[in-house]
Design a protein around this nucleic acid. Structure first.
Length: 101
DNA sequence: GCCATGGCTAGTA
DNA sequence: GCCATGGCTAGTA
């Protein structure tokens, strides 16, 4: 496992319930401001194994970015259970819910 | 070659 | 809506 990957995993783990971070924000915190897509890949391949709170990661617009329908719906439900609601436009208010690593 | 991005711009209203 | 981006992995040799 590469240092960047380990960093990203640690950062995602530390996001508390009721808060979210963006892909780019996590990448930047891990020391690679352009590495947003790596965060995507890491979530994809390592969420299960490492028990990551994958649902607390959204895109920079405040949207749920998952493309697969079932998981997308699941993410919305879990976030709601944690007190995070999406507005009519499907957006989450980052000014309220963003976690600053 | 993948990818659940992000940021900028052209084009509409 | 377009496209540059980058760290890693699956798959081949």
């Amino acid at each position: 496992m590469q240092p960047f990957t380990q960093q990203v995993i640690d950062i995602i783990r530390a996001i508390p319930s009721g808060k979210v971070m963006t892909y780019g924000q996590i990448a930047a915190t891990a020391g690679s401001p352009r590495g947003a897509r790596q965060v995507v890949r890491i979530l994809h391949t390592m969420s299960d194994k490492h028990g990551l709170p994958w649902h607390r990661v959204i895109n920079a617009k405040g949207e749920i970015a998952i493309t697969e329908d079932e998981s997308r719906f699941l993410q919305k439900i879990i976030l709601e259970e944690e007190g995070i609601k999406t507005n009519e436009a499907g957006r989450i208010d980052l000014s309220v819910h963003r976690y600053n690593g």
